[in-house]
Amino acid sequence: MPELFIPSFRTLARRVFLARTGQAALSATAVALLAGNEALAAQSKSGTKDVTILNTALGAEQEAIAAYQVGAESGLLQKPVLDLAVAFQGHHKAHADLLASAIKKLGGTPSAPKQPADYHFPTSKLKSQADVLRFAADLEKGAVSAYLGAIPLFHNRDLAKAAGSILGDEAMHWAVLRQALGETPVPEAFVA
């Protein structure tokens, strides 16, 4: 990690870590994203399609949670990066909770997470903190693209809004991870 970069990143990581104490408030925000959506349950065919989108997203969130667990248990992450990874994992858990809640509201069944070994993470290629950060950054970038590609497909605009909220969070993860790797945090004006 470049020397010039360390102080600002440590400060950033500490702030993210401290923000975890506000997770109850975040949960309230998540609940608010779906508040007043009793109409969700009344949907039929379009609701079924939304359930499919939500379950695909849930599967990716469950994998992200498992991936951060692998990173946290790898012994390769040092504080404050370790705290940051745990905080980001907490965000993904919140996303998964929100998605599962929406699926249930629509009358669907949330997909169950796989066993950790069934994800077949490329652990043999993770030999340093930078490797773990790169792996996480690629996952987050992919997640941003996945939500971007899913949002136009939602029939329910409130679900699209909730997905947009998650997209924003994952884009921030990606930027922070890029910064931790010493790369330009926001490389372009648009995401794809």
């Binding site: 996952l139 992919g142 997640a143 693209s145 996945a146 794809a192």
Partner: peptide, 8 residues
């Protein structure tokens, strides 16, 4: 471009 696919 394949990076877009990497979530899944």
């Amino acid at each position: 471009v394949y990076g877009r696919c990497f979530a899944c």
